[in-house]
């Protein structure tokens, strides 16, 4: 099962996504939670806590910084860039914007 959650800002996307992920994980399914927001907050709704969520390193930043290697497979991406969250969920943060970026509108 692959689910994407969308909607207007402040509507509750992250809370729904995090809660659904936790519920599915508790029912025994292996769950990968993907935070595709450039302002990633899914960690908070999954129960990682705000401080840890704010420290999560996004895949793109890790690659840019040369800290981690590119991963050609989905398993590799989840393994290398993921973080363990409660109920056995693996959380992967795609990208986050926290500096002034030149170019591209």
């Amino acid at each position: 099962m692959k689910i994407a959650v969308g909607g207007k800002g402040g509507a509750g996307k992250t809370t729904v996504a995090g809660t659904v992920a936790r519920a599915l994980a508790r029912s025994g399914r292996p769950v990968v939670a993907l935070d595709a927001d450039s302002n990633p907050m899914l960690g908070i709704s999954l129960g990682l806590g705000p401080e840890q969520t704010d420290l999560l390193v996004a895949a793109r930043q890790a690659l840019d910084a040369g800290e981690l290697e590119h991963q050609p497979t989905m398993e590799g991406i989840v393994e290398t860039f993921g973080t363990d969250a409660p109920d056995g969920i693996r959380l992967v943060v795609c990208s986050r914007i926290d500096t002034v970026e030149p170019g591209c509108p």
Binding site: S38, N39, I44, P50, T53, D54, I97, D98, T99, P105
Partner: peptide, 29 residues
């Protein structure tokens, strides 16, 4: 919403950025 357009220079005219915050962690971060 979020930091994206501020980072990509979508308000070059602005002298003051009015930053709206609610009393929640997501809003504050």
């Amino acid at each position: 919403a979020g930091p994206r357009q501020t980072a990509f220079d979508w308000a070059p005219y602005a002298r003051t950025f009015v930053l709206i915050v609610e009393a929640s962690w997501k809003s504050a971060l």
